Computed example of a mutant assay.
Amino acid sequence: MDCIKAFVVGGLLCAIGQILIDYTKLTPARILVSFVVSGVILGGIGLYEPLVKFAGAGATVPLTGFGYSLANGVREAVDSEGLIGALTGGLCASSGGITAAMLLAVLVALIFHSHDKS
C-alpha cells in the first residue's frame, strides 16, 4: 500500500507540473523553481510534513521534496546552532542528494559522448 500511496502522490505532483507546462506560458525552469519554492514554503509552515508521512518517497523525491528538505534542514540547524544555522542548515540537509546528482552527471558524461544531431 505504501508504494501505491507514493505512486499516486508523486504522479499528482508530476501531473501538476505537466499541466503547468501545457496550459501556461511558464518556462520549465520557472516551473521547477516554483516547485522548490513551494516545497520550502509548505515545509516551513508545516503543511508538507503530513504529506511526507502519508506518501513517503512520493512526496520527498520530486522537487517539492527538495524544498521541504531545505526547510527542515534550516529549522533543525537554527534550533541547534542558532542564527548561523539559517545559512548552513539547508546545505547540510541536502548535500547528499546534490553530491549524488553531481557524481552521476560526471559518470554519465564520461560514459556517453554527446554530439550534434546533424
Rank of each mutant, 00 (worst) to 15 (best):
L70G: 00
V37N: 03
V8T: 08
C92P: 00
G56K: 15
L12T: 08
L91I: 13
H113G: 00
I98P: 03
M1D: 10
G56R: 15
V8H: 02
V106S: 04
G82Q: 11
F7Q: 02
G11N: 02
R30L: 12
G17V: 03
I111Y: 12
S80F: 08
S34Q: 06
G58S: 08
A29D: 06
G97T: 01
E76W: 06
R30A: 03
I98H: 03
T24P: 15
E76H: 05
F35D: 03
L104E: 07
L12H: 01
I4H: 00
S38T: 15
F7G: 04
I19M: 11
A105S: 15
K25F: 03
S69K: 07
S38P: 02
F35Q: 10
G56C: 08
L32M: 11
L20P: 11
L12R: 00
L12S: 06
L104F: 14
G46K: 06
A105K: 10
Y68K: 05
A6W: 09
V61Q: 02
G11I: 04
V106L: 15
S34V: 02
A77P: 11
V36T: 12
I21E: 15
S69L: 14
L70I: 15
C3I: 15
L110F: 12
E81N: 08
D2I: 14
A101C: 12
C92V: 15
A6M: 08
I4K: 04
V74H: 05
F54R: 11
L110D: 04
V78T: 13
V61W: 01
I45W: 02
G46Y: 02
V74M: 13
K25D: 03
T60K: 04
G58F: 06
M1Y: 05
T27P: 01
S69I: 14
G65I: 13
L107F: 12
N72M: 14
V61K: 01
G82V: 09
V52G: 03
G56V: 10
K53C: 01
G85A: 13
I45D: 02
L91P: 07
K5E: 06
C92G: 09
A109K: 15
P50K: 09
L83D: 08
K53Q: 11
A109M: 12
Y68N: 07
I84K: 15
A6G: 13
L63A: 10
Y23N: 05
A29W: 13
I84T: 12
G11C: 05
V36H: 04
S38M: 14
S95L: 14
F7I: 14
L91M: 08
L51Y: 01
T27R: 10
A93H: 08
C14W: 07
A29R: 13
A105N: 13
A105H: 11
V78H: 11
I31Q: 08
A57N: 10
G96F: 13
T99I: 14
L12D: 01
P50Y: 03
K25E: 05
D2M: 14
S34H: 06
G82F: 12
